[in-house]
Structures are given as structure tokens and as C-alpha cells.
Design a protein around this nucleic acid. Structure first.
Length: 279
DNA sequence: AACTTGCTCAACCGCCAATCC
DNA sequence: TGGATTGGCGGTTGAGCAAGT
């Protein structure tokens, strides 16, 4: 008894294993995608109508469904999502139930606006961890990774864009005046930067500690300055002393979609001595 | 008043690792 | 040991609403 998506995933997997003329076939490409979607739409209805799956309900949860799910968790605890549908009488799949509980129904969740303190902590943690929302959420008790993820997208995307605009100006100014010198010297500097990134101290938890970290920073301008200063503090900038590959280097430095800043040895291009950013 | 645009956030999807059988 | 299942996570979507034109 599986939802149609399972059958589709399995079908795709089998397709990708097929070998035609010595090369692996693509399960779906841009041309066949619409046909495949249509096909699986029909299949999906067919599968459900024949009772081959439970015909999982989708869309917004009703109050009654919430009540049933809460009752279920009270009785059976978290983590047994696969049996929710049959036991609680919900026409929702395990994933949907888990998500609803984790992101909305959990009693320890904080509702309401994210405070400025929490906002700053999110920024700081995002610089450290990138889009690893689950890890960030663990430092913000009562907040879900989904909430933080949404918050980031709606509040900080703009700021990252502003930062990029600013950085473009700095970049053009900088390029006019800088020349690179020694390749090996640059390499040793960036390697030191990578080590320093790994030494960023663990952040304390709780509002009291955050007060110590960020005392009396209130207005928007200060917030912006704070935001940019974090980036300046944490993004290791190689010493620009030698090279003729300015464009490649600056692309690496300034193409900071979401400010993914997890440097690692495996993504470190030693031939250019420029840290590349995980995306 | 009607329409457009932007914002918010719940919910879904796909992928992957861990666990189960 | 290997396939199936489950749970967790990140990316994305889209409905609902408010503000602007």
C-alpha cells in the first residue's frame, strides 16, 4: 500500500539504470517531462481508485485532523509516524503527519514574531553553517527549521542582495588598485584562513548570553552594519598580492548566494589558491 | 472598486542516510 | 547482504492576505 509517488520514484530509478548504446539513459528530460507528468497523473488516479493506496489527503490541515494527531502523539509518542494513518484514522501519510507535528503542533513551539536577538543569532549561525537550517534551529529553542528557513528567505534575501551591490562597488574600486604578486604566498595565507574558520567558538545559548553578545543594537542601520560586519569577520579573504586571474577569484568571493561559507579542503582549489564556497 | 504586487508561511517534493527485515 | 521502509532535511510552491496603484 504505497502512494503513487513511490511507484514513480521506483520507475525512475529503473529507467536510470537502463543502458542504451553503451550509455545510461536519463529517466526524464525536458522533452519527456510533460508526458511523464500527464501519465503519472492518470496512473495516480487509477491507483487510488483501485484502492492500491490509501489515497492520502493533501492540503491544509483541519482542526479535527490536528486533534487526532495530537491525541495519537499523546498515546504513542513521537517517532511512529508510519502507523499514524491506521491508528489515528487520519488519511495523511507519515511524512505529512510528522511535518505537521514538528512544524506546528509540538507543544514546545514558540509562536509569534522572531525577536531581534534571535534574528541576529540566525545571521551569525547562518554565516557559520550556511543553509543547514536544522542545526541553526537547534540553537533557537522553540523555533523550527522550517520557520527559520522561511524567515531567512523573506527577511535576509534582500540584505544579501544589498550586500552584493555594495560589494560590487568595492570590487571595481579594488581591482583598479590591486596587483597580485606571489602565488605560493597566497596559498599559505588561504590555508591559514581555512583553519581559522574551523576555530570559530561555539555560540552560547539563551537570551542572557545573547544580550552579552549584542548589547543595545536596535535601529535598522545598526542592524545592517552588524550584518555586514559579520560577513567581513567570517568570510576569509585571501591576500590579493599576485595573480592574473582576478575575475575567477572575484567570482569565487562575491558570488555568495545565501552566504554559504563552509570552507573545506575538498572544495579548496589550490591551483588558484582561492577558497571556493559550498553551495 | 478592481487590479497588481509583495510578503508570509504551511505544506509538499525529492533526496539521502539510517534502520529494518 | 541487499532491498524496502522510515525519518530527517533542504528547496520550492502556492494560497491567503495586506498594501499599493
Amino acid at each position: 500500500m504505497k502512494p503513487p509517488s513511490i511507484y514513480r520514484a521506483r520507475w525512475r530509478e529503473n529507467q536510470s539504470k537502463k543502458i542504451v548504446n553503451g550509455t545510461k539513459t536519463k529517466a526524464v528530460d525536458a522533452q519527456t517531462q510533460p508526458q511523464e507528468d500527464a501519465l503519472w497523473g492518470v496512473m495516480s488516479e487509477e491507483i487510488c481508485s483501485r484502492g492500491m493506496t490509501k489515497g492520502w489527503r493533501k492540503g491544509p490541515w483541519t482542526a479535527e485532523e490536528d486533534r487526532l494527531l495530537i491525541e495519537y502523539v499523546k498515546l504513542h509518542g513521537e517517532g511512529r509516524w508510519s502507523s499514524v494513518a491506521s491508528v489515528a484514522g487520519l488519511k495523511r501519510n507519515a511524512k505529512s503527519c510528522r511535518l505537521r507535528w514538528v512544524n506546528y503542533l509540538r507543544p514546545d513551539l514558540k509562536k509569534g514574531q522572531i525577536t531581534s536577538h534571535a534574528e541576529k543569532l540566525i545571521l551569525e549561525l547562518h554565516v557559520r553553517w550556511g543553509n543547514r537550517w536544522a542545526i541553526i534551529a537547534k540553537n533557537l529553542p522553540g523555533r523550527t527549521y522550517n520557520e527559520i528557513k522561511n524567515y531567512w528567505r523573506t527577511h535576509f534575501k534582500k540584505k544579501t542582495q544589498n550586500f552584493r551591490d555594495k560589494s560590487e562597488k568595492i570590487k571595481s574600486r579594488f581591482l583598479k588598485s590591486q596587483k597580485f604578486k606571489q602565488h605560493h604566498h597566497q596559498q599559505s595565507n588561504t590555508e591559514t584562513d581555512i583553519k581559522n574558520v574551523n576555530k570559530i567558538p561555539t555560540l552560547p545559548q539563551g537570551n542572557q548570553e545573547m544580550d552579552i553578545l549584542y548589547p543595545n543594537i536596535a535601529d535598522q542601520e545598526q542592524d545592517d552594519d552588524f550584518f555586514y560586519s559579520i560577513l567581513n569577520d567570517h568570510i576569509p579573504v585571501p591576500v590579493l598580492e599576485s595573480s592574473s586571474n582576478e575575475d575567477i577569484m572575484w567570482d569565487g568571493l562575491w558570488n555568495l548566494d545565501d552566504f554559504q561559507c563552509n570552507f573545506s579542503a575538498t572544495t579548496y582549489d589550490t591551483s588558484l589558491a582561492i577558497p571556493s564556497l559550498n553551495t
